[in-house]
Amino acid sequence: MGRWAHLYALPQWKRLRALHLREHPLCVMCMEAGDCERATIVDHKRPHRGDMRLFLDPANLQSLCKPHHDSSKQWEENRGMSGGCDADGNPLDERHPWNSNRKRVTS
């Protein structure tokens, strides 16, 4: 959290977080993988970087378990794309450079 840690102490955030976990109690990444793990973290899909509109936007939130938040989500934020590939080894994320090169060649 670092620079924006103080935002997580705001009463508005605490209420929004509790409501979100009550309405969305399972980790979205676990569910995508066919698992069913309880979420403990409310994550911002788009990094807010101090923008209060993004910080408190319910549409910008997702429920994650701690392992996914601390690994997969951090990897994705640091690289600007998610990991993973299909059965042929092609990257799944459309933002991956390999996919953008492929679209130009096949278009």
Rank of each mutant, 00 (worst) to 15 (best):
S82H: 01
N90W: 11
S82G: 03
Q74C: 02
P67C: 10
R53F: 09
G89P: 04
D88P: 00
W75F: 12
S82R: 01
A33Y: 07
V105Y: 12
M52Q: 13
R49P: 03
P25L: 01
F55V: 04
C27E: 08
T40Y: 10
R104P: 02
R15G: 13
P11F: 14
K103H: 04
S63G: 08
W75G: 01
R22V: 07
Q62M: 08
L92D: 00
R104I: 07
N90Q: 11
E94A: 05
A39D: 12
R95S: 06
R79V: 00
E76W: 04
N90T: 03
H6Q: 15
T106V: 15
H44K: 10
E23V: 00
K66E: 12
T40H: 11
S82I: 00
H20D: 05
R3K: 12
G34H: 09
S100P: 02
H20P: 00
L21G: 12
I41S: 09
H68R: 05
H44T: 10
R49D: 14
R15F: 13
K66Q: 07
P25E: 02
T40I: 11
N78E: 10
H6K: 13
D88H: 04
S71P: 02
H68E: 03
P58Y: 12
L10G: 13
F55I: 06
E32G: 05
V42S: 08
G83K: 03
D86M: 00
R49W: 11
S82T: 01
R49T: 04
H96W: 01
V42Q: 06
G80V: 01
M29C: 07
K103W: 01
H6G: 14
C27M: 07
G84D: 06
R102E: 05
S72P: 00
E77Y: 06
K45I: 14
E32V: 07
S63A: 15
G50I: 09
H44D: 10
A9C: 09
T106K: 11
L92H: 01
M52T: 15
A59F: 09
E32K: 09
H44E: 13
